[in-house]
């Protein structure tokens, strides 16, 4: 049975270049750095494809007080993780969108709206989306992001979404595309390729 997308949060602020979502803390539902997600846009007629590049959990005085104790009862840890309205945010870079014609690797025509549902992308869709690699340029162009780590992690996760026998071929193809894009910057290229190899 194909895996159904898991809702991971709702959009709290957005632009065509990306969006920020908030959610309840639950380790199972927590998105992963470098993973793909989708947010509803245009009244449900399209989905913006995002690449998660940051997950942040803001602290507060009460959490700090409890954290400083030698021992915190399990009930209070569970309360802090599941009940308290601690602001947990994830940020995603827009790397494409999906409409009636399928996936496109360019900025979406409209951003998702506030409180739009954000879903993790199921492996089949991730394979479909990453069958083209134009989105790598969008990652490399993103300012002030941990671009090299993001790119390497994203490609590794995309490889894992594929059947085992296809993974190496995908990574080789992606490595070649990265080499083409970073032909003028061999230091970064080496860094990314090392990242791709590290956890193969």
């Amino acid at each position: 049975m194909p895996e159904s997308p898991k809702m991971i949060g709702r959009v709290t602020r957005c632009s065509t270049r990306g969006f920020v979502g908030a959610m309840q803390i639950s380790e199972n539902a927590l998105p992963v750095f470098g993973s793909l997600c989708q947010a509803e846009a245009q009244g449900g007629r399209s989905y913006v494809v995002g690449l998660v590049y940051d997950i942040s959990i803001t602290d507060d005085q009460f959490a700090r007080q409890l954290a400083a104790l030698d021992e915190v009862p399990q009930e209070q840890i569970a309360d802090g993780q599941l009940n308290r309205q601690v602001p947990v945010e994830f940020s995603a870079l827009a790397v494409g969108f999906h409409d009636d014609d399928g996936f496109h690797q360019s900025l979406p025509p409209q951003p998702p709206l506030t409180l739009a549902s954000v879903f993790s992308m199921v492996p089949n869709d991730a394979v479909d989306f990453t069958s083209e690699l134009h989105f790598l340029q969008m990652i490399l162009n993103a300012p002030q992001l941990p671009v090299d780590e993001l790119l390497a992690t994203s490609l590794r996760l995309s490889a894992q979404a594929r059947p085992e026998e296809e993974r190496e071929r995908f990574l080789l193809q992606a490595g070649r595309e990265v080499a083409r894009l970073l032909a003028q910057d061999l230091t970064r290229l080496e860094n990314i390729l090392r990242g791709l190899r590290a956890k193969e």
Binding site: P73, E75, D79, L82, N83
Partner: peptide, 14 residues
């Protein structure tokens, strides 16, 4: 309101 069940290890109900 909140119910903390001490000794249960479970998250309280709010």
């Amino acid at each position: 309101s909140i119910v903390v069940s001490h000794g249960s290890g479970k998250a309280p109900t709010i």
